[in-house]
Write a protein that binds this DNA or RNA. Sequence first.
DNA 1: TACGGGTGAATGAGGACA
DNA 2: TGTCCTCATTCACCCGTA
Lengths: 214, 214
Amino acid sequence: MDVKVKERLCQVCGESKQIGRNFCAFTCESCKAFFRRTALKTIQLHCASNGKCEINVQTRRLCPKCRLKKCFDIGMRIDFIRSETDNKIRRQLMIEKKMKKLLQDMSAYSGDSSDNDSNANSGQEFPESDGNSSAIDDMDDWIEHTCDDSQGSSRQVMDIKYCLSGKSDILTEIRQKAQKLAVIPMCKTLTDYNGINQLESRRIDELLVATNVF
Amino acid sequence: MDVKVKERLCQVCGESKQIGRNFCAFTCESCKAFFRRTALKTIQLHCASNGKCEINVQTRRLCPKCRLKKCFDIGMRIDFIRSETDNKIRRQLMIEKKMKKLLQDMSAYSGDSSDNDSNANSGQEFPESDGNSSAIDDMDDWIEHTCDDSQGSSRQVMDIKYCLSGKSDILTEIRQKAQKLAVIPMCKTLTDYNGINQLESRRIDELLVATNVF
DNA sequence: TACGGGTGAATGAGGACA
DNA sequence: TGTCCTCATTCACCCGTA
């Protein structure tokens, strides 16, 4: 009882909320985030009071230099901050995992497990938007019989349907360009870093190492 | 309820609009700007009423001396005004960031394939900022004869010129590092898509087209 | 549950301009 | 001088892994 009742305080600023062991010391959330952001930076910090500021909940944001100094003083460890490489890999894995789950959910709704990758596409796997309405009817049918709107997904479903069945100029253009290319244009992917998966990222690294161009 | 209802007032003039914590005290926007502009000035201010003016929304502009005195009295802190050096560095960083973005936008929109890759750079393609003004003259010349300001780009052009002709420590550092490296490390760039420059982006595209891997 | 990282609204600096 | 804007930083809250 007493252990729980006796509040732990942030060793940096004295805050009493959301205390946990962070980077090897008991701190609050804000000092945790502060240390993560600041400790690895190489830029010089300045203190107006010759490095003698008192750090508490009110003053902690006033002098980053003294706050960081106190972080180190109470034993927060810089080597517990994950490296950028590590973070990159983790983000990558998370994205892949999410994609996998999304695909699973999709196939769970549609029920079919036979969607083997027909990747030899040259544009034909896009639904044609030439006014042939049977495909759209099929889609409506499928939406009606498989979609569960208990979670308010109808808006998304409608968006997707609109996109697939619409006569969007942009979509048409994309299809035309895609058909001309033997290779799916990577430039598209590069407009969004999140779209690069682990394999692609690796491959780019390999290529660059191999070529020594830059 | 009471906290929200009770309006905060500027501690200097009593203004009730746009109150925030500025330089360690709750003030309005205009007293904030006044303090920023005035507090560091060394010129002597004079008061006709022997320093006993009352400061409110109506009178605040009548006596700068008493207004400034009240600023200090309520605890506004001069050491929270950033130094000119600090501001200079920040402006420099902002401009460099803008340049990066501008280059990205250019490569995204222009789609031109004419700028052949002079990729054997080892830092020399940065203009030297050693006081040799001929490069700057050339730049002025080039700006004058090629830039079209019909879309309000002159501001951006000036930013770029300022950045290229300045003696930025950061630029110097970048140059030195670049010269030491036969290869600009791509791994760094990949941690942040925004860091990929035009050349790098192009080169990746070329590599991918050439290899037909994906 | 503990402890990493990520996110986005709020905050508080400076700058531009009328 | 006062107002409005931009931008970096802060921190409460979230997610994922061990």
